[in-house]
């Protein structure tokens, strides 16, 4: 079997104030079709179907993200394209994740407007990304060619939160 290499080589940075880790090889399916009720219809929202997240990307465009190896239980009509190799996923965990993202992202990620299931296409440290809020972590989906830059930026920017403010 051919060897698989992810853009960040399974990168993990668990010792910082924000736990940064690549989740390699997630299956990503781009769907373009007429909207229907099985898909999230509001901008910036996602829905969960089994272990697959379906993210709104546009009024006629969605991205289904799930475990590596493809989906067997999901079938969509329209233009359905496997884009798994296009992006990798970076998981961010910890109390300072929003503060970290705010250092490089102008989009409002406050819990009041960006709750569990919210997703947004925007830029983070000048790299185009999709940010998805999950229950206990944030996912940042980034194109393979920007992944090293973004991982390096995240590690560097997160060091700020290792310093406790003086009383």
């Amino acid at each position: 079997m051919a060897e698989q290499n992810s853009p960040l080589g399974g990168f993990r940075f668990p010792e910082g104030p924000v736990t940064i880790a690549e989740i390699p090889f997630l299956t990503q399916i781009n769907i373009r079709k007429e909207p229907d009720s099985s898909l999230p219809l509001s901008a910036g929202t996602s829905s969960r179907s089994g272990d697959v997240d379906i993210l709104w990307l546009g009024p006629d465009e969605w991205l289904a993200v799930g475990p590596p190896g493809g989906f067997t239980e999901h079938h969509w009509e329209g233009s359905v394209v496997d884009v798994s190799a296009q992006r990798t996923t970076i998981s961010l965990r910890g109390p300072h994740v929003r503060d970290l993202l705010a250092l490089g992202c102008a989009t409002d990620l406050h819990p009041g407007v960006f709750g569990v299931g919210a997703c947004v296409q925007t830029t983070l440290a000048h790299a185009p990304v999709i940010i998805l809020r999950r229950e206990s972590e944030f996912w940042v989906l980034v194109r393979a060619s920007f992944a090293t830059h973004l991982a390096g930026w995240l590690v560097d920017a997160s060091r700020e939160f290792a310093v406790e403010a003086l009383p």
Binding site: A43, P59, A106, V120, Q121, T123
Partner: peptide, 11 residues
């Protein structure tokens, strides 16, 4: 019209 107000640099 879809995403709401965003920074000019996204456009």
């Amino acid at each position: 019209p879809w995403c709401g107000r965003r920074d000019e640099s996204e456009f």
